Simulated assay, not measured.
Amino acid sequence: MSELTGAPDRGALPPRALIITVLGLYVREAGGWISVSALIRLMAATGVDEQAVRSALTRLKKRGIVEAERRGGAAGYALSAYARQVLEVGDRRIFARPGSDDRDWVVVVFSVPESERAKRHALRSRLSWLGFGTVANGVWIAPAHIADDTREVLVQDGLEPYVDLFRAEYLAFGEPAAKVARWWDLTTLQDLYAAFEAEYAPVLRRWVATGAADSTDARAEAFGDYVRALTAWRRLPFLDPGLPADLLPSPWSGTAAAETFFALRDRLEARAHDYVTEGQAPAAARRG
């Protein structure tokens, strides 16, 4: 699951992470399939060459994210059913502004037999992916607004027999902000948001300065910048449980990072989409 939502903390974005972003943004709306040649064209605008695209597709196929499929005589790849499900859950987190005023919590209490270690690892991985913090062994917590996603993911992965799910209110003892700082690694999350802001605030300023130029080159640039920004962003909402502002360190770098991401989205999304459709990149999906 982290393959579909994760992105590196620092440095260059790997080709397969950029490809997953393109699959989630554009291939689903075109029927869930794209030709290899069309994907190579699109990925060139993000700085990924043909060999890297083909290598990344092979790895994504091995992980069950895409399936090789020919349509209309063209070689291509279709999203797996598993990938579609995870991407749908991801949309609700990635494109929602972080933060909530909800004072209730969802608490997961689980116990997995030693003979089923793989299930225990999978459960911890899923809870981390959903943004849960750790209270104690087998007791994890998150703001109540992610309860529905939690239920859906646990059932989808067959992990619900090991879990009890509670809705709770913190009564005592101690300061909630101090408890939250123990349950989540907010320092690392603060650093990740700051790194995103440092990388993409200059990109936003460049687009604000250049205005709304409308040409194929401008649309290709918009596509590349938007895909890179979204790839860097999409991991952060899963690390961030969406805590109330008064429980977070002040100042909180996530606020500026979110403003930058959504401003870039507003400025680039339509032009990026136009770049995809003007080349009829996913059109083969409709010919099959």
Rank of each mutant, 00 (worst) to 15 (best):
E160H: 03
D164V: 10
R126W: 06
G211R: 12
R92P: 06
A30T: 01
L268G: 12
L23T: 12
A45G: 01
A147K: 00
A232M: 03
W140G: 04
W233C: 14
A281T: 07
Y162E: 11
A136S: 10
A122C: 08
R93W: 06
R97I: 01
F262G: 14
A52V: 02
R10S: 12
D240M: 03
R287W: 08
F95D: 13
P15S: 01
E67Y: 04
R10A: 08
E199D: 15
E69G: 02
F238V: 02
A222W: 06
Q190Y: 07
A245V: 14
A44C: 05
Q51K: 04
L171E: 07
L42F: 02
L39I: 02
D102V: 11
G99P: 11
R219N: 03
D240G: 14
L268H: 10
A177Y: 04
A172H: 07
H145K: 06
R63Q: 14
L239M: 09
A75K: 14
V27I: 11
V203P: 11
D246T: 14
A263G: 12
P15D: 00
R28D: 05
R10G: 05
I40H: 00
A198F: 12
S2V: 03
E67D: 01
D185V: 07
A38E: 05
D185W: 02
W33T: 01
E152V: 02
T150A: 00
L268R: 11
I19K: 01
D149F: 00
A83K: 12
L268W: 09
R28K: 09
P249D: 08
L23V: 13
A270V: 13
E175M: 06
E50N: 03
E3L: 09
V53G: 00
S128T: 04
L18K: 01
A198E: 14
I94V: 15
A81Q: 08
A178N: 07
A257P: 14
V153Y: 02
R28P: 03
T188E: 10
K61G: 05
A181D: 04
L243K: 06
S253F: 12
E278I: 02
W105F: 12
Y26E: 03
V66K: 07
G138R: 02
R84K: 15
S253V: 13
E169K: 10
P8C: 05
L4D: 08
R287D: 11
A201I: 11
A74F: 15
G24V: 06
K179H: 12
A17Q: 03
A177L: 06
G99Q: 07
T277F: 09
Y170F: 12
T46R: 01
D185E: 08
R234D: 01
D164C: 11
L248E: 14
K62F: 11
S128Q: 03
A263Q: 13
L192A: 13
A38G: 14
G32I: 03
L171W: 08
R234F: 00
E69W: 13
L159Y: 08
H121L: 15
A257N: 13
D191T: 11
R228H: 13
P249W: 06
Q85N: 14
P244N: 15
L192E: 13
G24S: 15
G158K: 01
M1T: 11
V53I: 02
L87E: 10
D191I: 04
R70F: 10
A263Y: 06
D101V: 12
S37C: 04
